[in-house]
Design a protein around this nucleic acid. Structure first.
Lengths: 157, 157
DNA sequence: AGATTTCTCTTCGTTGAGGAAGAGATTAGG
DNA sequence: CCTAATCTCTTCCTCAACGAAGAGAAATCT
């Protein structure tokens, strides 16, 4: 009601479309975290690990902005839930390397509906269009990562 | 090591590219929330309000999965931070309508770096390519929203 | 080899958010 | 006009997560 479906309202305000898109992505992310019984910091750390790769607890603590105590307990929770595993560093036996495990059961089950819908959506595009989309995905990944680093640097003033 | 940099590994696994993209978006979202001193649930509710529009505290509580007590305190925090405002419903004087305020100062300042980078990124595409991208944004918005609703319905079993 | 530094883990105290029950206010129905 | 139902807000309680300080183990330097 009140929204004309037949007329293309998609291009009316590009900024609004993009804001709604970001809100939907974040919304789904939080709903997934709740379904997995994951805390906010836990999901935050998990995203860092998935994006940057294995790292030591010290580096993870620095990136999450946590001190050593909470970092240890954070890794304990993630390890107990089956999302990461602790591995020994061959070079330094003091160090511990935290690495994400490929496909956690809960997260995979929770992400399944979204994965299927996005898969169907992407399947409707031509190869040329998919090339445009994935080019954007790759470039936007760097853009958001740089913006996040910038925010992290600013908050440490 | 073990990763050939000179060969184009970007197109080798599309799923991996998309996962990294989602991780980067979520990562930036959490970093923004931390920079705004917003809790996880606060940002969650804010996204719901931005995506769905004004609603009563009762409906917001249902969507966030919170009971009435925490919902009131949640709205208090958002109102005090300047992100939403309480308005009276002309029809029912019992009801309160929570509506998001257009451009919160902190959130706008925090989102500025990402907005600029994404703006520059989108500026490099042709009109036809932009049409593909924004078509995806609009469709993915619905997909993620439906997936989030599905998750919410499942968790209420 | 001994001392210093680095890294991770443990423990205690505190702060913050969410759940449950009850009160006040307003609307609808008999 | 009076009773029942609905909606929001308040209060008390519990619990999980973070910060700070200290201990143990291992690598580096003298």
């Amino acid at each position: 009601m009140g929204e004309p479906v037949s007329t293309p309202a998609l291009r009316s305000d590009a900024s609004e479309v993009y804001r709604r898109y970001l809100s939907a992505v974040m919304l789904h992310g939080h709903a997934s975290a709740k379904a997995c019984e994951l805390g906010a910091t836990d999901l935050y750390a998990l995203n860092i690990l998935q994006l940057t790769g294995p790292m030591t607890p010290g580096e993870l603590g620095t990136r999450t902005g946590l001190t050593t105590g909470p970092t240890t307990r954070l890794i304990d929770r993630l390890e107990q839930a089956g999302y990461v595993r602790r591995a020994a560093d061959p070079g330094d036996r003091r160090k511990v390397i935290v690495e994400p495990i490929g496909e956690p059961a809960d997260l995979d089950r929770v992400m399944a509906p979204a994965r299927q819908r996005i898969g169907e959506l992407l399947g409707g595009y031509s190869p040329e269009q998919l090339e445009v989309l994935f080019d954007y995905f790759a470039r936007a990944t760097d853009a958001y990562q740089e913006a996040a680093d910038q925010l992290r640097a600013k908050s440490a003033d």
